[in-house]
Write a protein that binds this DNA or RNA. Structure first.
Lengths: 150, 150
DNA sequence: TATATTTAAGATAAAATTGTCTTAAAACTT
DNA sequence: AAGTTTTAAGACAATTTTATCTTAAATATA
């Protein structure tokens, strides 16, 4: 698995949030049921995204979370970085600290191009891109087919 | 981190093994010291590679492990698959089982090209490619700079 | 103001990964 | 044949990740 479970859950939630109105807040409880993710676990993940200013949250009735910017302004990379860190966009495949053009490992050149490509697609793809794609074609973002857009 | 620690250790060991003669066996103890990896942990990882027929092993004095084929005949992908499984080359980024062209997730199209590229470079790059690169330019394959080729 | 609702935060638990230790089995050496 | 070296295998422990549970704090509503 390329991303942690936390990261995958975060991506699913963010893509869904980009598909709905940013007017009001969405309760995490409702989100967790819609996405079939443990409520408390999802809460923690969304807290990281809130701490990273990708989400805004509000307590109390009518409270919940919502995107801090429009879905078109949030990249997939921002979400991944907030949860799994920047490693996949920057790190050496062999896990060598300081690996780079000046002080490479044997796999550096072979991997650099691919890593750049990963960085590119995650930088140039927004949450809105994904939510539009999913909503337009009615694609699932949960393992079971229960999920419904809108 | 894109690969598990086990996988990274396995890759380092295999690249090193591809840099030396396949005549005799190399003791895992020696390997573990050279690569600065816990002996018992490395033993387990190499056992997986032996079970997958990428390594041959022999017990007793003069025993150890060696590549089962020449380093030019073993791809990086084979090593990764043996340890981390094929997931990174095949799986959905959102972790959806059955995600594919027929039943995609919203991220499928965006990710497919990159995943194919990962698959390509790991399929077309051999252990020998990496060991030659490392040995020729004297690049490190361990975090500290203690490692010495040959 | 009191109550209900909701996120925040922290404690705890379960599972997976990483790492260590012990014993067994095989092969070489003397 | 006996002893030494080495991988194989399994038990055990530590750490990280994943998941659950409880309490606190904030906010709306009545």
């Amino acid at each position: 698995m390329i991303f942690s479970k936390s990261c995958v859950y975060g991506l699913r939630a963010m893509i869904y949030l980009a598909s709905i109105s940013r007017e009001g807040y969405v309760s995490i409880k409702g989100l967790s049921e819609k996405l079939d993710i443990s409520f408390h676990f999802l809460t923690k993940i969304l807290q990281e995204l809130t701490a990273d200013d990708l989400l805004e949250s509000m307590k109390g009735p009518k409270g919940g979370v919502r995107l801090s910017k429009s879905g078109g302004e949030i990249t997939l990379k921002e979400v991944v970085k907030a949860i799994d860190g920047p490693g996949i966009f920057t790190e050496c495949v062999l896990g060598l600290p300081g690996c780079g053009s000046e002080k490479p490992c044997p796999m550096h050149d072979m991997w650099e191009g691919t890593r750049d490509k990963i960085n590119d697609v995650f930088t140039t793809t927004s949450l809105q891109d994904m939510s539009k794609e999913g909503k337009a074609k009615d694609l699932r973002i949960t393992p079971d087919g229960q999920f419904i857009w809108g």
